[in-house]
Amino acid sequence: MQISVIIPVYNASEFLEKAVDSALQFDEVQEIVLVEDKSTDNSLEICQKLVVKNSKIKLYQHPDKGNHGAGATRNLGLEKANCEFISFLDADDYYLPNRFEAEKEIFKHTKIEGVFGAIGVEYLTEKGKQAFQDKFKNISLTTVNFPAEGEEVFRGLLGLTTKVFGTFFHLNALTIRKSALIKNDLRFNENLRVHQDSDFITKLAYHCYLKSGIIDKAIAVRGVHDNNRITKIVRYSREYNQRQLLLWTSLYNWADSNSILPEGKRKIYLTYKSFDLSLKTGLNKYFCIFLEVIKNPQILKTQYRFTYLNR
């Protein structure tokens, strides 16, 4: 295997070297693509020093040297990556020594286009730990509940399997054939400042043949600290619902233009509509809920129903 590791860099000076070193430990990693997104700390300077130290490390910025967000930054990384396989790593996270163990065997089967695994958590600050646990309880492993491949992965992510599939797997634990991304014209939605990873993974699971790898123990670690975007927004607050609506609007528009299974399209619509209703106010809100329940009574069974019923 020859792997390009894409690392988007924004205000990660404290963690970046550890992330890069964790990727350099693998012979399979032929290049590390750092894409710096106009940090306000000294991340760019650290990137420049790392490039000098190791020829596998390559540094890019957006053509205008501006800040464009994680989606656009990862897309630039995809454009610059040269290897047959692509993996991702956030600049404040790191790989474990078993990161590509499953991939070495699974990718011998040419029909497999992507492999995903589990990631663990390391608390770097007490404040970050408290915020993370308030939102996600005491979850030590971001993973799925059972092995899956092909269409079952897509169905699982949408909650359409008989057993609960689990949480979205993390980009840090995903390895994908670059040819699959090119064939299906898959990129990150640059209009989503957050949740562009969930949007990408859902579309990837539909268009590509994915298979679970190591899901019972971590192959990478997420660093939790004070500045994690994922912990800053209170779940089911108005801001949370606004950002979820952007995500599910993106998926709704995509599903509408693709021939996905009817139950998948319906699930995406109902989730999109739940967050849309949650943001309406006054009597108009209850009128819209009433009309939607008449048209689609299933909306009362979605896990997001209380986002609009209780707010």
Rank of each mutant, 00 (worst) to 15 (best):
T125A: 08
K203T: 01
T167S: 14
E14G: 05
T249C: 02
K267T: 07
S87C: 06
V144D: 09
K217P: 02
D199V: 00
N67V: 13
I233L: 06
A220P: 03
L283M: 13
D197F: 10
Q25C: 12
E263Q: 15
P8S: 05
K280H: 08
R311N: 13
A81Q: 06
E190S: 13
S39P: 09
L96W: 00
K53D: 14
D92Q: 05
Y240A: 08
L247V: 09
L270G: 01
A81V: 03
Y304A: 15
N253E: 15
S179E: 14
T302Y: 08
L247E: 09
E113I: 10
N296W: 11
L186K: 03
N145I: 12
V144A: 06
Q130S: 13
Q303R: 14
F275G: 02
F116D: 08
G150D: 05
G117I: 04
T202Y: 05
T231D: 11
Y10K: 11
N258L: 13
Y209P: 04
I233E: 04
L261I: 15
E103Q: 14
N228K: 02
S13V: 05
G77N: 09
N253V: 14
N253A: 13
K38L: 15
L89R: 00
V194A: 00
A70R: 10
K56Q: 10
V121C: 10
K273L: 10
D199K: 03
I182N: 11
Y206R: 03
T271Y: 15
A118N: 05
A81H: 02
V35E: 02
I219V: 15
G69V: 12
K137W: 11
Y94E: 14
R305G: 00
F275H: 10
G166W: 11
R222N: 12
S212R: 04
D197Y: 08
A180D: 05
A12S: 11
F290C: 11
F15H: 13
F116K: 03
S274L: 13
L160G: 12
I219Y: 00
I299G: 04
V221E: 06
Y209A: 09
T231L: 01
A255E: 01
N67H: 13
T110F: 01
A72V: 03
E84N: 10
F165G: 07
V9M: 13
L309P: 08
T175M: 14
D92M: 06
H68P: 06
E239W: 03
H195G: 04
R229D: 15
T249P: 01
Y60A: 07
K127Y: 08
K65Q: 13
L204Y: 01
N82P: 00
E151H: 12
F100C: 08
I176P: 00
G223S: 12
Y240Q: 12
K232M: 08
A102S: 14
K267G: 02
F107D: 04
A180V: 04
Y206N: 12
K104G: 11
N227H: 12
V51P: 00
D21Y: 00
I112D: 03
E126T: 14
Y206V: 03
T231I: 09
D90I: 06
Q48L: 09
A148K: 06
H109E: 14
V144P: 00
G166Q: 08
E17G: 09
I119Q: 00
N172M: 08
L270V: 09
A81N: 04
F26C: 10
L96R: 01
Y304C: 03
P297D: 10
F15R: 07
L78T: 10
